[in-house]
Design a binder for these strands. Sequence first.
DNA 1: TAGCTGACGCAAA
DNA 2: ATTTGCGCCAGCT
Length: 94
Amino acid sequence: MKNNFSQRVKTVVINIPRGQVMTYGQVAAVAGSPRAARAVGNVMKNNFDLAIPCHRVVCSDGSLGDYNRGGSKVKKSKLQAEGVRIKGNSVIFN
DNA sequence: TAGCTGACGCAAA
DNA sequence: ATTTGCGCCAGCT
């Protein structure tokens, strides 16, 4: 049910500080399943919760991934606006 | 109950 | 650097 994992994922993402990004795998790991990166993405797209800064969640290789609110370009812009360094179409972890 | 899908992750070619 | 294939987990049909 969506009261253990998905809820967990939401909480984790909401707890991501501004100017900071996390990978799906990392979020999944914190949520309780280090291999549930896909499940994390599924949760995000299924949950249109504005309280969840899904744009702070990116792929492990730095790719932006997708975004249910305007596309990867909007996601990229948002991250840049928060102080996250973007290289081309990828995020730079610091 | 079983099967398919998907905003991923990693390895190999 | 890019593409292909396989594995993983949770949710939906």
